[in-house]
Design a protein around this nucleic acid. Structure first.
Lengths: 306, 306
DNA sequence: CACATCCATATCAATTTGATATAAAACGAA
DNA sequence: TTCGTTTTATATCAAATTGATATGGATGTG
């Protein structure tokens, strides 16, 4: 048995409408087609489904039984179509993001603000963690994508694209006001206590390499767990630190922070988006990724020829 | 949205098989068609449903959601097809019959014996009652059809066809042995006590009319509720009675019954099948009706042209 | 590096569907 | 009754879809 399911749809509408003519209208089709379709269906199934009369049709006992099933089936299909349709309009959905601190403040939060206004129905789950942790979350399927700072150290089955580079500045507290408004060298800085992120972070690695490239040793006196903790320490004059510019910009106690005019250029960090290669993003995810990348629209589906 | 449901079937099989090629085989179709169908479906729905790879396809999040619904839907459709198919082979079903006593013994039981051997899966519900009661049951939808003795007194929305006429005989108990082997007239009979069915039955009406047509009055001394009760009364010599021949034939105490050679011909009764005009019989019902009418097969459905 | 296994595309014939005109049957109202 | 309306049934043909085959590209395997 291999009956066209479109015939069942016609059957469904005829049963609901109680007439061939009515079903034809509901289906934007014509009555002779409905007559033919039902006749074919009856022939295929080997039994009469409707009793015809001059004022419409009614189900036979067999038709009745079939209808019990078909009605459930088509309500399911319609529910499925409705769900897809909702997803498509982004009235619903959930996006999980694993994001490192710099990426959160420097990229995700501002974009998310717009995204949330455009698609208030999409729920967002943010997991704020270090770069390695973010990669692990992505690997374990806990996040749809990760936003981290380079170097990422991604796995084979992941893909990473740079989205935005950011510059950092060297800052210190007001106790070091003698350094204000004058050019200092990196070597001079090593004579002061240095405040840095945890030695397990990629940022630590980055600065470590930069220092050694300049013939110096990066040996912080104080290590903080998060960038957010870095600035208070600096404000309390615990030492000099390298902080992404945006953190300084956004701070509401700027007067307690002194930006140093450093001779050497601090290496740019870069925020990149990491995705799993074999995983297809949901529409809500794709849209957010598009916004993060500054892309207008994602690839269109095309209608097949012939 | 007006997507061909056949595409959903293809989607269903692709999801189940995990590959376009596999689905093509399962559906006795070819892979390029599957590719085209899924591409069309994706275009219509406006989202990607499968992630293609060199070793098959997997569902995207949207495809997954759709599959939840489609799987339920198609299991329903398949269940519906299976049920129809079962009905068609008469492996299942139920037939309710309202039948009067004469029709039961004279027609239904012998036919039912064969029917039940042919279609053991069909359950049969017999409601044994008087002709008017049988008509009422049919009217109330409690019976699929009625088998009664004429005159039926059927309603407007019912159709009646004569199936079999039966002859009755005048019988008495052994106490009346002097009537044995001689021709008696109806007038002579009126001199003996008469045993008859209830005055509310159609049979009573029938004999009443017959007597009056012969210038006599039908005034039974004893009225029985059912034909089954008639013969024991006659055997106990309570009087002369008119009994359908088959009841006498099938009796296992024939020696206690004397058949009278009556001059006047006893009017033939007729068993007829009554159906509701606007109600379509189930396949199981139709088959039984066919057997009762001695018909080989019911009308065939034809395949529509072009 | 050849080979097998996927999916993608192009093409064309065969089939199905959509649309229109028209018939037949049944019902209700004038 | 007869006419008008409403229903399903049938015939027919163009348009669209589907089925089938050949072929190409990507990827993984011995």
């Amino acid at each position: 048995m291999n009956i066209s399911y479109d015939y069942y749809r016609i059957f469904y509408y005829v049963a609901k409408c109680g007439s061939f003519t009515g079903a034809a209208n509901a289906l934007l089709n014509n009555q002779p087609n409905i007559t033919r379709a039902i006749k074919t269906l009856e022939y295929e199934l080997g039994c009469t489904l409707f009793i015809r009369s001059n004022k419409g049709v009614t189900l036979t006992p067999e038709g009745e039984k079939l209808y019990q099933h078909i009605a459930v089936a088509f309500q399911q299909i319609e529910a499925g179509e409705a769900e897809i349709s909702l997803d498509k309009t982004l009235q619903k959905g959930i996006v999980s993001i694993a994001v490192s601190e710099v990426a959160l403040h420097g990229l995700l939060l501002p974009v998310l603000e717009n995204y949330h206004i455009s698609y208030p129905g999409v729920r967002i789950k943010i997991s704020n963690c270090s770069t390695p942790q973010a990669i692990t979350e992505l690997k374990n399927g806990l996040a749809d994508f990760a936003l981290v700072t380079t170097p990422t150290g991604i796995k084979d089955d992941m893909k990473s694209v740079n989205i935005k580079s950011f510059s950092s500045v060297a800052v210190c507290g007001t106790a070091y006001s003698k350094l204000k408004n004058k050019e200092v060298t990196l070597k001079e800085i090593t004579e002061y206590p240095i405040v840095s992120l945890d030695s397990k972070t990629k940022t630590y690695e980055l600065y470590s390499k930069w220092f050694s490239d300049n013939g110096l040793v990066f040996s912080p006196d104080i290590e903080a767990a998060t960038t957010d903790q870095l600035l208070p320490m600096i404000k309390h004059n615990l030492g000099i630190g390298f902080v992404p510019e945006m953190f300084v910009e956004n701070d509401n106690e700027k007067e307690r922070i002194i930006r140093l005019g450093l001779k050497e250029k601090i290496p740019n960090g870069s925020i990149c988006l990491v995705t799993k290669k074999n995983r297809s993003p949901s529409i809500a995810t794709k849209k957010l990724v598009d916004m993060l990348c500054g892309v207008k629209a994602s690839s269109q589906l095309s209608k097949p020829k012939v």
